[in-house]
Amino acid sequence: MSPSMARNPPWNRIRRKSVNAIMLTLTGICTIFAAGILVFILGYLFVHGARSLNWNFFTKLPTPVGETGGGMANAILGSAKLLLVATFVGVPIGFLGGVYLAEFGGGGFSFLVRYVTDLLNGVPSIVMGIFAFTVIVLPQKHFSTLAGGLALGIMMIPIAIRSSEEFLRNVPLALREGSMALGASKSRAIWSVVIPAAKAGLITGIMLNLARVAGETAPLLFTAFGNRYWSPGWEQPAASLPVMIYTYAISPYDDWHQQAWSAGFVLLAMVLGVNILSRIILAQKGPALR
């Protein structure tokens, strides 16, 4: 304490108290700002997107350039197909890998898997797109739903592993011991007791994971590419909602901008809906798992 402070204690106290009040208020303002952004985004998309949303959006193909109207039915189906491929790529590997880490793992190899998983999770999505491009599009010489789905599927693996590991670990040890005391092998106990007990969490994890990759645009730009028509089968370029939003947003047409808002609203409603629902399920089931 300097002499001046000691000589003049009330002023010092007032200074410290006002710094306290100012800084605490500032942190509150930071919070309001951060939370306000989401409210703003939601509100804006709702006002702009929901207003021009109509039945055509879900049932019609895009119209040729220059004509107004039309919809994004092909993009909605395309997104669904991409997510289906992604699920088949990402969920089995992620889920089984999670089972290994939670039930059989331990030691250096598990640490390595966890670390690499975290690194893979941090790989920019555009780089995943390049990867899917080099392993599928380049040899096949054409864009396809498969390539896009592969890119999204690989992006799902890290989260799938970590979430299944976590939910399996939350199953009480007593359940494992009980079933093994009845004579079940370890794998039988896992399959018939542990996994069913963790089912709600595991499914929620997959839903959250799907919601996350459903909005990914960058890895699809040069894998699934885009398509203004239906995309039969799995071997052709396919439209998807996020890429449609991007293409329409940077186009010079007002009608397309309007449709980009609608598509953004639909995508955001889906993504946030799944997120909110999952959190409610987890909040209800969570304590029981622990």
């Binding site: 951060a34 645009t217 980009a260 955001l268």
Partner: peptide, 12 residues
């Protein structure tokens, strides 16, 4: 939830 908003929508 803000973290879950797709980046293309932030761009929009």
């Amino acid at each position: 939830l803000l973290a879950a908003v797709p980046s293309v929508i932030i761009g929009l």
